[in-house]
Design a protein around this nucleic acid. Structure first.
Length: 817
RNA sequence: GCCCGGGUGGUGAAAUUGGUAGACACAAGGGACUUAAAAUCCCUCGGAGGCAACUCCGUGCCGGUUCGAGUCCGGCUCCGGGCACCA
């Protein structure tokens, strides 16, 4: 009798064997080319959901496959442990964020281990470990010295009732999610990293990253948003020493500018508000917009005229200054010139407020141009522009910029949509920003010897504000410059800071520096797996940070992630899974009922990696049935006793067909794992192989050897996906070397050879028959055979053959008329 | 609003470089085994006609290119992701 397949026993046994042999511990000295496989580390939200299961199974499948292909693999795991949910839990349940986080990590680690991921747990760390964030503070201070860091005002969402800053997701319909109070935009001094200094490199390098999906590269290109244009200075009427600078991509339309618009936070808006209650009221009203760009883009465009005027740099005409709610202070100089004739938004604004619309561009072709109906936004020929009339875009651009340069009133510039990275957060649960505020000396960096600035973890939350504000032992410090009393910064870093370099730390997790030489060995990550929701922010910040580290000499490469696999979302009720959506996605009960291999197989079988799909338990029974069949069939085969060495010459036709299927499956699986990165079809290929073995009657020793070969191959192929059952069956098949790292078998081309092929015959593109032909039959022979088919004859009879198309090994199309 | 994806049977999907649409599964229906059930095994399974051979229709919608389009092009529509403080 076969032993019954009991995943709980099989999986425990396999995991103990892996632990015992330490086969997943990364080691620079192992043979084989290094291969760093990494799945984006999780935020320890409490329990794994099916999105995690998918991501980490995919990472594990890739890592295990690479081991079979002879690579020296590093596959680590850790925790993105700082963040908002821990504070929310603290406020709600009065648990210190550190304890809540550590408990979650312990539970989620046990779930990952239960899933059998072949990860190197010896390198594990959490970003809330001071050993980790120490070096983030250290790098920040290095960047401070280099001038890569600066402080300026930026707007935040302010909850006036809770007296706290809210994240965008905490603002619901313009109100604080807890207090319900109307949220205000408020300016605060914040730290910024000069990512814009690297905009060009971040953009240009995308052209040389073949391992990234085009869609992600395009998203990043659009995000960085390089545009060629000009900066133009408008002298203010009230103070000729002051200028208002705008950026435009269309300096050719300068003569059509009929007003300028500034952001509500712009100094000119504030100046105008001093003497004008209507403007002050409008600015107040603008404060009720959130800081989210999506809200800005969809809201009703509105503005108010000021009494201020600026002088047109070429005509000297006075143009009115408007304050408009759609101008972003964060982008460019917080001011735009408005050309309603040739910009749709400006046109709508001018229509609404009765501002002049002047045509300065006319079509060169037959494009429609009716400024009474809409703006003409195409490039064309200049009119109503004095000396520039008749010029087309490129000439006009150059001539107008030259004219401006001559007056010192403009210059051509390359502008980026990308804004500098604001890294300050007015939150407790994050990495302390290592600066000190001294009344006498101003902002002072914490001396390197005093690092890390440790975040106190013994805290009690009273209300929603950061407990740091009330902790004198944290707050009160002496100024490193004058030794007088000073105050420690209470803001912490954006958590994207931690996730921007953790992959480098995994290479040398115990280094007494940010990283050591081992980072140069393992970096860059060869295969990075993660959700598509990280396509822009995380991946762009990490690329930037890696360049900062490179420029410090810490790493060698220019880019951190060679190959990027972007996963579609595992949806729940049509939306991405989140902490707030409950634990419907918790895999725990599935692991208890079916075991890890079934959960992993079902997840891999459900869809290809990049596709989003709604999670459903429907596939689990099928996956469980498949593994059980595999278990039973391999045991039945093993019970027939020892198998002789395969003698291909002695195979029966069935044995030969099975052997071909085995090698086709090896070839397909290798291609799917390695090149196509589509794993659902690996599972189906093994299912097909299993079905083929099931139909094979092994009548002689050679056939039994072919069956053995089929099972050894099938078990090996499925092992990255269902590693525990594979571990057990490997031994059942009499294999003595460990399966982890066993060399992937070479495909035997002679086994793939076919004597005859089935071709499809079409008449006028419709399938009319199938023919079996010798594999080496030439085109004339194939055509003759096709025309001999009875059904094909019926369709070509009495008609003229106009064209004959033969696609080798596939089909024949006969075109008749 | 802007940027990036996606839409194929009752369901998850496959079709890799423009070449047989629906592989492999799930669910369902029928049958075998069983006192019965579970498990297992076998058969059917896009729609319509024929009830066989075969024919017509069919990959979100409309149009185009091609001997041939799920695949390429143009226009739409619905769904998802991102939009700088969720991670």
């Amino acid at each position: 009798m076969n032993p019954v397949y009991d995943p709980q026993i099989v999986e425990k046994k396999a995991q103990e064997a892996w632990d015992h042999s330490a086969c997943f511990v990364g080691d620079e000295n192992r043979p084989g080319e290094k291969y760093y496989c990494l799945a984006m580390f999780p935020y320890p939200s409490g329990r794994l959901h099916m999105g995690h299961v998918r991501c980490y199974t995919l990472g594990d499948v890739i890592a295990r496959y690479r081991r079979l292909k002879g690579y020296n693999v590093l596959h680590p795991m850790g925790w993105d442990a700082f963040g908002l949910p821990a504070e929310n839990a603290a406020i709600k349940h009065n648990i210190p964020p550190a304890k809540w986080t550590r408990d979650n990590i312990d539970y989620m680690r046990s779930q990952m281990q239960r899933l059998g991921f072949g990860m190197d747990w010896s390198r594990e760390f959490a970003t809330c470990d001071s050993d980790y964030y120490h070096w983030e503070q250290w790098l920040f201070l290095r960047l401070y010295e280099k001038g890569m860091v600066y402080r300026k005002n930026a707007v935040v969402n302010w909850d006036p009732e809770d007296q706290t800053v809210l994240a965008n997701e905490q603002v619901v319909d313009g109100r604080g999610w807890r207090s319900g109070a109307v949220v205000e935009r408020r300016e605060m001094a914040q730290w910024f990293l000069k990512i814009t200094d690297y905009a060009k490199e971040l953009l240009d390098e995308l052209d040389d990253m073949p391992g990234w999906p085009e869609s992600v590269k395009n998203m990043q290109r659009n995000w960085i948003g390089r545009s060629e244009g000009a900066e133009i200075d408008f002298v203010t009427e009230h103070d000729p020493a002051q200028t208002l600078t705008v950026f435009t991509t269309r300096p050719d339309t300068l003569l059509g500018a009929t007003y300028v618009a500034v952001a509500a936070e712009h100094p000119l808006a504030k100046l105008a508000a001093e003497t004008d209650a209507e403007i002050a009221a409008f600015i107040e009203q603008c404060k009720q917009n959130t800081t989210a760009e999506a809200d800005m883009a969809t809201m009703e465009k509105a503005g108010v005229a000021t009494q201020l005027k600026v002088r047109h740099p070429l005509t000297g005409d006075l143009l009115p200054v408007w304050v408009a709610n759609f101008v972003l202070m964060e982008y460019g100089s917080g001011a735009v010139m408005s050309v309603p004739g040739h910009d749709q938004r400006d046109w709508e604004f001018a229509q609404k407020y009765g501002i002049d619309i002047v045509q300065v561009i006319e079509p060169t072709g037959d494009e429609a141009c009716d400024l009474a109906a809409s703006a003409f936004t195409e490039k064309g020929r200049l009119v109503n522009s004095g000396e520039f009339d008749g010029k087309t875009f490129d000439d006009a651009f150059a001539a107008i910029v030259t004219a401006l340069e001559g007056r010192g009133a403009g210059r051509s510039v390359t502008n980026y949509r990308l804004r500098d990275w604001g890294v300050s957060r007015q939150r407790y649960w994050g990495c302390p920003i290592p600066v000190i505020h001294c009344d006498a000396c101003g902002v002072q960096p914490v001396p390197e010897a005093d690092l890390p600035v440790e975040l106190p973890t013994e805290v009690t939350f009273e209300g929603v504000s950061s407990p740091l504000h009330k902790m004198d032992e944290f707050l009160q410090v002496t100024c490193p410059t004058c030794s007088g009393p000073a105050r420690r910064e209470t803001d912490t870093f954006d958590t994207f800071m931690e996730s921007s370099w953790y992959f480098a730390r995994f290479a040398s997790p115990d280094a007494k520096a940010m990283v050591d030489e081992r980072a140069k060995f393992w970096a860059p990550v060869d295969h990075y797996v993660g959700g598509i929701e990280h396509a822009i922010l995380h991946l762009l910040y990490a690329r930037f940070y890696f360049k900062l580290m490179r420029d410090e000499g810490l790493v060698d490469a220019d880019e951190p992630f060679k190959k990027l696999m972007m996963l579609g979302m595992v949806l729940q009720d049509g939306k991405k899974m989140s902490k707030s959506a409950g634990d419907a996605g918790d895999p725990q009960k599935l692991l208890d009922r079916y075991g890890a291999d079934t959960v992993r197989t079902a997840m891999m079988f459900a869809a290809p990696p990049e596709q989003s799909f709604e999670w459903s338990e429907a596939g689990l029974d099928g996956a469980a049935r498949f593994l059980k069949r595999l278990w039973n069939m391999v045991h039945e085969h093993a019970e027939t006793g020892p198998v002789p060495v395969l003698d291909a010459a002695q195979l029966s036709p069935q044995g030969k067909a099975l052997r071909r299927k085995t090698h086709e499956t090896l070839q397909k699986a290798d291609d799917d794992y390695g090149r196509r990165q589509q794993f659902n079809t690996v599972v189906s290929a093994v299912m097909e192989l299993l079905n083929t073995v099931g139909k094979t009657q092994a009548t002689n020793d050679a056939d039994r050897a072919a069956v053995q070969e089929a099972w050894v191959s099938g078990v090996l192929i499925i092992s990255p996906i269902a590693p525990h059952i594979a571990h057990e069956l490997w031994t059942v098949l009499g294999m003595t070397e460990p399966l982890v790292g066993y060399p992937w078998p070479a495909v035997d081309d002679s086994a793939l050879k076919q004597d005859s092929l089935t071709l499809v015959v079409q008449v006028n593109g419709k399938v009319r028959g199938q023919i079996d032909v010798a594999a080496d039959l030439d085109e004339t022979g194939v055509l003759a055979s096709a025309k001999a088919d009875a059904n094909v004859q019926r369709h070509i009879e009495g008609k003229t053959i106009r064209k004959e198309i033969v696609v080798p090994n596939k089909l024949v199309n006969i075109v008749v008329g």
